[in-house]
Design a protein around this nucleic acid. Structure first.
Length: 426
RNA sequence: GGAGAGGUGGCUGAGUGGUCGAAAGCAGCGGUUUGCUAAACCGUCGUACUUCGCAAGAGGUACCGGGGGUUCGAAUCCCCCCCUCUCCGCCA
């Protein structure tokens, strides 16, 4: 959500910048809608002021023991006019905010202009892309062959886009979760949070998934509850409707949760394997920052996510998303892409964004220093997507004999140095 | 699931139809004074939208869990919903 007075005051400049991300803001229509809403507000508020004054007069007259029947009839008439106007006022207001809530965030000045993912800018590449003296397999072949990943049974239990991890496959998932949480809490200063994964509509509105993206969510029938699509939702909403002391910022949280996405509109994409699932696990990093520090915090947060890939010795690159490829609420986003030998391609494994005040304004997250209170800045990023990290390890560490070597930093967690078909039932 | 109590400003907590956006205390902010790891005193102190204004600021409307209703007028009365607490039941 944009700041209304700022938005109104800089409409043309904002519209021009929004156009670079493919959003056409109809400036004239917006101005007309704004004027209509304000005219309706002014009219009904004037009448309300009149009613309040006259009601006060009635109170005085009554106290003086006078008859007030005439005045009451008069004020009742005002009340009727207000009631008649109210519907139009509410409608104008609703139309206006529907439009405003549908306007995406304005890209930060450092974001390159572009139309699609093709125009994203690679910031740097890290690690060495492995070479194999055999034809590297996809994880959806390696996993079932090792008995650590089972799609058929998952389809039986639930349906498509679900998976069962077995044996060392399940342990690897758990090892990754612990490794990531330990690293972020012990070395990067994050406070661990274990939130509900069932969230209400107010929280989803606060972080921007609603009202626009309801189709991407699983809703619990007969309730106002949804399965959270990312820990960003519960963790950012920890401080919804709160005013934070500026001195305490930045606040840094990390959280492990399962995430649930309906993946409507993703039919045919990543259908094989566990790259795109209805349920997946993620360790999320969330920061609340002062406006003056949020962009340096984005660099920091992104480097924290990178350090996980670095320690796992997985080759990756950092990409700065162009205006046309950013998410709705973001002002600036870095994607981290890990190398997958099975696909011979880099695949997104983390998305780190600074939302500036866009979420904070919706969610009423403020920061206060002295007398000044303003919206805080919120940031988040995956640190990392656990399932995709699992895939990256299986594919990058695969051996000619079909086994998978365990990355050194994970060995204490996994209590194993290699995953073989024979060893997976432990 | 059953029974009861309750949801008021950053916090504690008054207020049961009109002068209440809301007493008082605490915290915060500004200041005075004394002077020593602080006290006393004075002032100030919610949010959103909106009107006027270059601005400083001044005015208006709304908000006392959420939504409806009654009334000239609602924090206060009525209805529905949500949440918290206590007891009972059940239970990982």
């Amino acid at each position: 959500m944009h700041d209304l007075s700022y938005f109104r005051g800089n409409l043309d400049a904002i519209a021009a910048r929004l156009a670079t991300r493919g959003y056409e803001l109809d400036v004239e229509a917006f101005r007309a809608l704004d004027a209509e809403r304000r005219a309706a507000l002014t009219e009904s508020e004037t009448l309300k002021a009149q009613r309040n004054t006259e009601s006060g007069e009635i109170a005085k007259l009554k106290k003086a023991g006078q008859d007030t029947a005439d005045q009451q009839a008069k004020v009742r008439a005002i009340g009727d006019r207000i009631a008649a106007l109210e519907e139009a006022t509410k409608a104008a207001d609703a139309r206006f905010y529907e439009v405003l809530a549908g306007v995406p965030n304005v890209p930060h000045e450092s974001v390159p202009v572009g139309a699609s993912a093709d125009d994203n800018v690679e910031v740097h590449q890290h690690g060495t892309i492995p070479t194999f003296d055999f034809s590297p397999q996809n994880h959806w072949d390696i996993g079932p062959a090792l008995g650590i990943l089972d799609f058929e049974r998952a389809a039986k239990i639930t349906g498509a886009r679900f998976a069962v991890y077995m044996g060392l496959g399940a342990k690897l998932e758990r090892a990754l979760i612990n490794f990531m949480l330990d690293t972020h809490t012990r070395e990067h200063g994050y406070t661990e949070v274990f939130p509900p994964v069932v969230v209400n509509s107010a929280s989803l509105y606060g972080t921007g998934q609603l009202p626009k993206f309801a189709a991407d969510l699983f809703k619990l029938e007969g309730t106002d509850y949804y399965l959270a699509p990312t820990a960003e939702v519960p963790v950012t909403n920890l401080h919804r409707d709160e005013t934070l002391e500026a001195d305490l910022l930045p606040i840094s949280y990390c959280a492990f949760t399962s995430c649930f996405r309906s993946e409507a509109g993703a039919y045919g994409r990543d259908v094989r394997g566990i790259i795109r699932q209805h349920q997946f696990q993620k360790v999320e990093l969330v920061k609340f920052a002062r406006p003056d520090q949020s962009h340096e915090q984005l660099e920091l947060l992104t480097s924290h996510a990178e350090s996980i890939l670095d320690r796992l010795k997985l080759p990756f690159r950092r990409v700065l998303l162009c205006t046309g490829d950013m998410g709705f609420s973001s002002a600036k986003t870095y994607d981290l892409e890990v190398w997958l030998p099975g696909q011979s391609a880099f695949k997104e494994i983390s998305s780190c964004s600074n939302f500036e005040s866009f979420q904070a304004r919706r969610a009423a997250i403020r920061c206060k220093s002295g007398k000044k209170t303003e919206p805080a800045h919120t940031l988040n990023g995956s640190g990392l997507a656990v399932g995709r990290t699992w895939v990256a390890i299986i594919e990058n560490y695969q051996q000619k004999d079909g086994s998978v070597v365990v990355p050194e930093v994970l060995r204490p967690y996994l209590q194993a140095e290699v995953i073989t078909a024979r060893g997976t039932l432990r």
